[in-house]
Design a protein around this nucleic acid. Structure first.
Length: 319
DNA sequence: AAGCCGCCCAACCGCAGTCTC
DNA sequence: CGAGACTGCGGTTGGGCGGCT
């Protein structure tokens, strides 16, 4: 036999808390603590579920909570930790005194996610989109790249176009120097918001990819590792040179005068990252099967990047 | 001025692990 | 030892509010 239920579902109030309810809960907890949430609403004279009381206390009434805006330092902490632990909001909040998991989650979903997307960074993996596409291209042959790109565009396009159509979005946003260093990114500093350019831009990307694939049919998976540098950071990536092929679309298909965010983002990131590519000898020291991004001052190493699809999954165009 | 739309965030929902009887 | 409540957590919702047309 188990415990009795925490509350009668029918007889509890729901929705916004009133100041009076807050006072009752706060003063009761100040006297008796938070030992038994099932008894708290009953003893405090509240028609609330214990769970509701617990949430109200932990997310709002606790005296040690901060209620103001998130500082730059807090935002940076969230972004860095999120890159390592993902959506473990309670873990992230534990590193931010006075912030709750709910606060962090809301701030991430409403602000930081969009900020990263607007900077050309995938908020799930914390990699630049061009970097992700390069990774994909190193794993797949052209037909699969095309399929996966189509799928990825479907997801990212919506988010990006949403940002583009918002007039209030500040596309001049730049990452702090530490963020940029940490993420090894190049940021689209100025973005066009011309609505007519949106669908056209997406179509250009698709076209560029298919052209690149068609023009370089011999650039198939070669099992060679390649090396690139991002800023002063050397990268050693197992895979193939067809990553380079796939991402030449940034320059070849668009030309440098296209001011669309897609183009600028993809061109600059892909160009900078892949422009320094050089193939290594198969027997070279760096072709040992380990993918590594060296950046001693950053948490954004390959080991800490959680999103790493197995190649089997990548072979499925629906992923 | 009014209606519409999108954003923000408090609150709820539901699941999983833990605890209690 | 098992049933079921408790707790913690991440995902989702919806109402209030402000900006835009």
């Amino acid at each position: 036999m188990g415990r009795i239920p925490c509350c009668e579902k029918e007889n509890v109030k729901r929705g916004q808390w009133t100041p009076e309810e807050d006072n009752k809960l706060s003063s009761y907890i100040a006297q008796h603590g938070t030992r038994n949430w099932r008894l708290i609403p009953k003893n405090a004279g509240l028609q609330r579920c214990g769970k509701s009381c617990r949430l109200r206390w932990t997310n709002y009434l606790r005296p040690d909570l901060k209620h103001g805006q998130f500082s730059q330092a807090e935002e940076e902490t969230i972004m860095k930790l999120h890159a390592v632990v993902g959506n473990r909001w309670s873990l992230i909040a534990a590193q931010l005194p006075g912030r709750t998991d709910n606060d962090v989650k809301n701030h991430w979903n409403t602000k930081l996610k969009k900020k990263l997307t607007g900077m050309g960074i995938d908020p799930v993996t914390h990699k630049s989109f061009s970097h992700l596409m390069a990774e994909i291209a190193t794993t797949l042959g052209p037909p699969q790249v095309a399929n996966l790109t189509e799928a990825a565009l479907g997801c990212f396009k919506d988010e990006m176009l949403h940002l583009l159509t918002k007039k209030r979005i500040d596309f001049q946003l730049q990452p702090t120097s530490s963020q940029a260093n940490a993420m090894n990114i190049n940021v689209p500093y100025s973005m066009s918001t011309k609505p007519e350019a949106k669908e056209e831009t997406v179509e250009k990307i698709k076209l560029g990819i298919s052209r690149a694939i068609q023009q370089q049919p011999d650039m198939m998976i070669s099992n060679k590792s390649w090396e690139t540098t991002v800023g002063a950071t050397p990268m050693h990536v197992n895979g193939t040179c067809n990553a380079f092929t796939a991402f030449q679309f940034g320059q070849s298909a668009f030309g440098e005068e296209d001011g669309s965010p897609w183009n600028q983002s993809m061109c600059s990131t892909a160009g900078d990252q892949l422009g320094h590519l050089k193939l290594e000898d198969e027997n070279g020291e760096d072709s040992q099967g380990e993918k590594e991004i060296r950046n001693g001052s950053s948490i954004f190493t390959t080991d800490s990047i959680l999103w790493d699809l197995p190649s089997d999954d990548l072979m499925n165009p629906m992923v």
